[in-house]
């Protein structure tokens, strides 16, 4: 994933090998996930910028029946630690 912005809080990914296209992620948040024509999930953007969105993405990851959704710390958050993350 290329860092288009330096201040992404987190990055969300879907592991294509695990996804079964259940559509739960898209139903929980169409802003974050969509299903491709083949019926599998991909992130709409992938980079998450605020705490609420990160929290939502984590909920989706927790609910996905295949454990296919991953939320990873963004490059910036990684480098500077969570405390410094202002809005």
């Amino acid at each position: 994933m290329t860092a288009r912005h330096v201040d992404a809080r987190a990055v969300v990914r879907v592991d294509a090998r695990l996804c079964r296209g259940t559509g739960l992620c898209q139903a929980m948040s169409p802003a974050l996930f969509r299903l491709t024509r083949a019926g599998y999930a991909i992130p709409v953007d992938g980079e998450l910028y605020d705490d609420d969105t990160v929290r939502l993405a984590r909920s989706v990851a927790d609910c996905c029946p295949m454990g296919a959704v991953e939320v990873l710390p963004g490059d910036d958050a990684d480098a500077t630690g969570p405390e410094s993350a202002g809005t």
Binding site: T22, L24, P65, M66
Partner: peptide
């Protein structure tokens, strides 16, 4: 090929599918 909906779809899709 394409996915079946035997385990449902969306929010309530089968939690016990595994």
């Amino acid at each position: 090929g394409p996915r079946h909906v035997g385990f449902g779809h969306g929010l309530h899709n089968c939690l016990g599918a595994a």
